[in-house]
Design a protein around this nucleic acid. Sequence first.
DNA 1: CTTCATGATACCTTTTATGCATCAAAAACT
DNA 2: AGTTTTTGATGCATAAAAGGTATCATGAAG
Lengths: 296, 296
Amino acid sequence: MKIGLRHIRYFLVLVEELNFRRASEHLHISQPALTRTIQHLEAELQVTLFERSQNFVRLTDAGRAFRDGGRRVVNGMEATIDLTRRVSIGEAGALRVGYTDFAIADALPELLKRFHQKHPGITVRPHHGVTTSQLQELRDDKLDIGFVTGPVRQPGFQSRVVQTDRPICIVPEGHRLASRTSIVLADLADEDFVHGPADAWAHFYDYLFPLCRRAGFQPRIVQEAFNSVGILGLVSCGMGITILTESIYDFATGGLVPLPIRDISDVMVTEAIWASENLRLPTQHFVDFLEQLDKK
Amino acid sequence: MKIGLRHIRYFLVLVEELNFRRASEHLHISQPALTRTIQHLEAELQVTLFERSQNFVRLTDAGRAFRDGGRRVVNGMEATIDLTRRVSIGEAGALRVGYTDFAIADALPELLKRFHQKHPGITVRPHHGVTTSQLQELRDDKLDIGFVTGPVRQPGFQSRVVQTDRPICIVPEGHRLASRTSIVLADLADEDFVHGPADAWAHFYDYLFPLCRRAGFQPRIVQEAFNSVGILGLVSCGMGITILTESIYDFATGGLVPLPIRDISDVMVTEAIWASENLRLPTQHFVDFLEQLDKK
DNA sequence: CTTCATGATACCTTTTATGCATCAAAAACT
DNA sequence: AGTTTTTGATGCATAAAAGGTATCATGAAG
């Protein structure tokens, strides 16, 4: 015979009552049934849990230890059952969200905050990553939703624009262009650029390079940093200039000058992307949430 | 029907194997029995835990939640059973130990350290208190062992001397006696004394006052502090002098001068005291431990 | 000295769990 | 293409566990 949750539940009620008959009534069973269940429990444990006499029933030291542990077990079981049910109806769960520097600097924080208000049981697990790595993680089912630099067209996946940014040029204080109020792209033809590695930042380059080519030059990238904070850092110590978005510039600590670029009309888009089929419930909730944003 | 630990154990094995037949062999039951148990579990939870087909068995999101919670429950149950058994044979448990300033300043730390080495499963719960309050707590079964200022003779309790201290006089730097290398009690006849409250420190007074009376004076107590640290503090700011033990003087931070008292031959004893009957197992272990100290 | 309340035991019934035989469907093999 | 094997599910009979009723022994209260 093995110890089951039934034994523990009966035991805990008896601990409260310290009287077999009253405890058995509370449990809606007969008194002999309770007596035998406690006997079986003690036999299986090889431990006396109660001192009994006709006058009193009281816990032994070992009984107290079993009471404390038993309560934890029963509470843990109830919590587990509750959580499992909530997960099964999508009221609880985890959502793995990928994001780029561009997304986290602008729309994403507010978006996640509102999603959390609507679905407080769903834990958002943020995964930082560039567009290419997020797309791979989506295909590998390591990620539920990606926030990536668009436009992306991935077979089996759907996407939706959540953010548009007009790129700006960022130069260090004291730079020859720092006193200008705005520029055109051609002004940057002979500048040194600071940016991210070509493989990781491929999607941003796909957006930026054609614009420069149209303006008649190929940007000369002389320094690479692994994220936008690093890029801004290198710019501020005079290693070169860069083109990023205004929201990212807002994170800079100083020593930098933002310059609007008059002849860029194309915006840079950040898209949410997710699998078109077999969505997990938290993902489905997030997609519904994104779609409701349009209606409001 | 209710969920029992059996359901969870079977479920967890199936989670490991993800194959009903193999899991049933591992459990030493037939495959239909396992299928039924999992069906009952899912019916009771009203949750699908596994996606099944003839080709594969895999967990749902809810199944993963139940797996994590179920593991905690089963581990908690096993730990509880183990702890309960250990408590019942006295291998684990709690020992409520009372101690005075005199005890904790000298013998007790080493004693408790060695006891813990011998019985690592027993947690010592220290309760600071003066002799009188410890005796009350022993009678009320709030304490298993007291370390008190002796001699005490309490009906139904046994005691054993664990520490003897020769009292010394402690005066502040710059005091008229501070340059002496030792004194006799009569030197203190006209001094102001700092000590603890009469009710709480009754046992110490019972030891000290007769000595002073024999030396021909009644100590004049002008300041009271609640513990020995407070007494030493008041002495060091010149409020008076005191008589305590050398081990307590060792805790002083400075500004004090210790003076041996040549004409005190009676030592001050600290005793361990415990009930003579119906000892809890940890208490019995401690008493046995104290008795083994003599043999070594 | 009786009455009452307690926890334990004996005996029987109901409920639950299990094993065996078997099925339908898909995969693996010939 | 056809056969064999493997998978999880189901029907039915059996074993084991849990429960109920009646009753006992013991100590407390009246």
